[in-house]
Design a protein around this nucleic acid. Structure first.
Length: 160
DNA sequence: GGTCAGATATAGC
DNA sequence: GCTATATCTGACC
């Protein structure tokens, strides 16, 4: 297990990899430090993965990719895989509700179960769960609702 | 196996 | 607006 803390304006990332360099967990918060830097790193080996993440994040941030594309561990159940696969197909700024997502994967009544998958999603940005909202508007986000709001605002306003 | 908690949706008030 | 309830999965006992 290798971990790294990476400052990449406007976020600070907390990353966890396994020995093969597959991302296991990703979380982030706002950072107002403009200078990109590694605050903590597990090993030299992890440095390579940090750089890989850096590139993938920039590609997403510059709207070149729909999400952060990076090798990661996929130990999900069949249901979770269906949900996450559908999620990966969303474009920048494309917003969907839990209900519509449920219908798309063929479980029209499983909207609540999808909420659970989102809440448990260890890899936000890799699986862009911020694009899933409730039928009455923004609902929860594991990284904090303000971050969900910010990510969506940015994508919708500048991402097209 | 049973129970229970959700980042829900919907109806009925 | 609020409350109850329908509905499904996964975690936990």
């Amino acid at each position: 297990m290798q971990k790294a803390i990476l400052n990449l304006f406007p976020f600070i990332f907390y990353l966890l990899w396994n020995e093969e360099g597959k991302l296991i967990k990703l979380s982030f918060n706002f950072s107002f430090d403009l200078e990109p830097k590694i605050l903590q790193i597990g090993s030299i080996k992890a440095k390579k993965w940090v750089e890989e993440f850096y590139e993938a994040f920039l590609a997403y941030w510059n709207f070149e990719k729909d999400r952060v594309e990076i090798p990661h561990l996929e130990n999900f159940t069949e249901f979770e895989k269906r949900v996450l696969k559908e999620l990966s197909q969303l474009k920048i700024g494309e917003v969907i509700t839990y209900k519509i997502l449920a219908e798309r994967i063929g479980y029209p009544k499983a909207h609540r179960a999808i909420g659970r998958v989102m809440a448990k999603n260890p890899l936000p940005l890799v699986y862009p769960c911020h694009r899933v909202i409730g039928s009455k508007g923004l609902t929860g986000y594991s990284q904090g609702l303000i971050l969900k709001q910010f990510l969506l605002y940015r994508e919708i306003k500048y991402g097209f």
